[in-house]
Design a protein around this nucleic acid. Sequence first.
DNA 1: ATGCCTCGAGTTCA
DNA 2: CTCGAGGCAT
Length: 786
Amino acid sequence: MTRGKADAPSAARAADLRARIDDANHRYHVLDEPEIPDIEYDKLMRELSELEATHPELVTADSPTARVGAAPSGAFAPVPHEIRMLSLANAFTPDEVEDFVRRVEQRIEKTDPVFSVEPKFDGLAISLRYEDGVFVRGATRGDGETGEDVSANLRTIRSIPLRLRGTDVPTVLEVRGEVYMPRDGFEKYNERMRANGGKVLVNPRNGAAGSLRHLDPRLTAQRPLAFYAYAVGVVEGGALPTTHSATLAKFREWGVPVSALVDTAHGVAGCLAYYARIGAERDTLPFDIDGVVYKVDDYADQRELGFVGRTPRWAIAHKFPAQEQQTLIEAIEVNIGRTGAATPTARLVPVHVGGVTVTNATLHNADQVARLDVRIGDTVIVRRAGDVIPEVVRVVMELRPANAKPWTMPATCPICGSDIVREEGESVARCTGELTCAAQRVQAIFHFASRRTMDIDGLGERYIEDLSDLGYVVSVADLYKLTVDDLIAMKQRADERDGTIPETTKAGKVATKWAENLVEAIDKSRRTTLDRFLYALGIQHVGESTSKSLATWFGDLALIRHLPWPILKLVPDIGNEVAHAIDAFFQQSGNQTVIDDLFARGVVVTDTHPPSPKLRAELTVANVLAQFGIAKVTTKRAEQLGIAFESLAAVAGANADALLEAGLPTETAESLLTYVAMDEGRALLARCIDGMTRLAEATSAQATVETGVLDGKTVVLTGTLSALTRDDAKVRLEALGAKVAGSVSKKTSFVVAGEAAGSKLDKAQELGVEIWDEAALLAFLAKHSA
DNA sequence: ATGCCTCGAGTTCA
DNA sequence: CTCGAGGCAT
């Protein structure tokens, strides 16, 4: 093979070939008007790859030959989305669409607003990043915040341009859209697979999702995938039009494929007409769709509408009715969850619904079973609700066997035999076995180890079951004393128990590696944050959000684990139920022991900090007293007491005279005295007094301890940081006392400018504000972070 | 008391 | 994703 310098004619020929191939792709995928036949196209491609093979120095990153697929590259790196990838609210009926449009109209004070209307493709959402017009990276949606880098696979998709056309392309442009598998491509692929005995794809949607997750892009290249854009992410160094529809039109100019079915519509009537039109075309379309999407067209209006949680208020997905199928109920089983919730689950004769095989369907609770009157042996209609989760819609009564008996919730837990109890007014029945119940224990450990809590990679439900069954792990703290030997021994015993063939020497090596990895993952999980740790504990009613609140308000588990419920209630969104649940959890000595054990075995909460100033503001005698719910002691009375007495202890110790002197009516004073006289009342007051003291100490310690290097400094972040996300940087700067602001002013202490920083950098220079590059920030953080 | 909204918990399949 | 229920405003 000639490896010398490329001669000029070869270089020119390569450039020419690339231009012609790009052009053919553009015409085919974007303009939808193929010009040259496939054979011709293949010939051009072959010539180019041969040319590149003999002259490797001619290969460019955006060469169409990259589409054949590079060699496997290992795992997918996580990619943080600077601008979150959205999920949409759903509407199923015209009424819901009307409600949506009405809400929009009210908020933006316009009637019959213009919507960009689009088909909702049934594929996989991805984000493509172009820098200077060249495709540099593509990522899956992931959880919306962080996706996976699937660039190598995306490069193989011919409708994704590797280079944008036109002169007005922004320096950085993130194009968002859907990777899907066209129906004919899906059929042909499966035909081919059936012919040579390969594995067929279940449906186009899974085909698309699965294809992008191939570690070997050469496999992805074989799959018939395509792409349509429908949204925009980060834009830097350039401007987009002021409406969504104009942006999509611009995309087309730049060579990004946008479905020809996108349109604009006015008001409810326009949207519903579009829904009807697309619905009628649905079956003849070359790709699968599961509904249509309405987006408020004007970006200014979108901004005004904003978000509720993770979903925008300016868009909604109007779904087509879910597909339904008929099948048979073989059994109704009871599942025990982390909190002991006993959930009836229908075991079904497998049936294809909406493209997947369904074998289980949750029946939620006994009420639901009764409402549907589902019995074992019944024929039922199953639907894939929303998108994924199968649901039993109704029983086909005509087909009910004569001997079918109504189902009832068992009285005892199928796992541990404890009573199953349903509280008054609750819809769920619970196993009362708590942690004596193996199922609850396994679920609790599984929750503890899961991604959003301690994040122990590789510790799945199956291993937890084995560890628990074989007695290696009883409480979550036991995870942290597991050794490699323990794990290997455990696996051996599990294999023997299951009758799995004893491991050969080669497989023995694998088991060792597995155990080593798991021990390492467990070790890695030892360092965690307070919010994750709290969430991991699995306290009833304390999920991700409440854990975050608790962490920011109190800052230290040493405090939280001793606080009585009246103090916990001071936190917004924590009411009676939640506060009592937290209190009750920590009152259980067993739970305290587990926490001590965790710390003793090396678990470290890294972000402990003093209680928040907000808490200090709320933590008054009056506020705490008002939480108790003592008869007659209203908020107003509590305030009087707060003014009259310095401390909770003083209130608790006050006699009748002192209370009357504070201006309390006789009845109120009596009620309070009665409360204090009760053992329970006195005990709770004592705990509150103790809690307030602890908090006061922790807070006063703050004055001396808090010497953040960046106290009083205001920092602005701009541009793209590469080593850490903007959020990350923000958190870490704030941890050092800085305030991270959104815009530059003369009060700004310094600006951190990443790649492709824009107007904020200009402004900083103009105002003479200190400017740091990313390296300076990293160095600073490294030096000053604990 | 009543209604809205957000959060928690449980769940399916590949 | 969906349902139920807790928190809070009215």
